[in-house]
């Protein structure tokens, strides 16, 4: 960063990367079914994060863009039988996001049993 102290904190004119899909307003009679649950701020936060993760996973952009110095040490490499490394940084970042995504869906379902999870959602195993 340049000089620092004098730089005023400026807000970017770019709006946050909000969901481009317009939120669908349910007709009034539908609200009885859901109990207005999707207006629960916690659910909204979870939904927002879910969308964000889905977008990150689909964007094809590097998922782990932390600079060299800011990363923790990598785990021991694991190779497949072709000798290609499996647990690359990118792979681990993707796994992490997938895991978070599954957890969020689990939480949403807990709050709203009527929520229809995406097709690739796997409910968590019951045993610990």
């Amino acid at each position: 960063n340049d000089s620092g102290s004098g730089t005023r904190k400026r807000k970017s004119r770019w709006a946050d990367d909000e969901p481009k899909l317009p939120t669908i307003q349910l007709p009034d009679f539908m609200k009885d079914f859901t109990g207005g649950i999707e207006f629960d701020p916690e659910i909204q936060a979870l939904n927002a994060r879910l969308l964000e993760i889905s977008r990150m996973l689909q964007s094809g952009l590097p998922l782990d863009d932390r600079p060299e110095g800011a990363r923790s040490p990598s785990p021991e490499p694991i190779y497949d039988n072709m000798g290609i490394r499996i647990n690359t940084r990118e792979y681990r970042a993707r796994e992490r996001l997938n895991k978070e995504r599954q957890d969020i869906i689990t939480q949403i379902i807990k709050r709203n049993p009527a929520f229809k999870p995406p097709a690739d959602y796997r409910p968590p195993k019951l045993q610990k």
């Binding site: 004119r13 709006a15 909000e18 481009k20 964007s59």
Partner: peptide
């Protein structure tokens, strides 16, 4: 192009 299309700027 994909990332910015449809985003809001000011």
């Amino acid at each position: 192009r994909t990332g910015l299309n449809g985003r809001k700027f000011g």
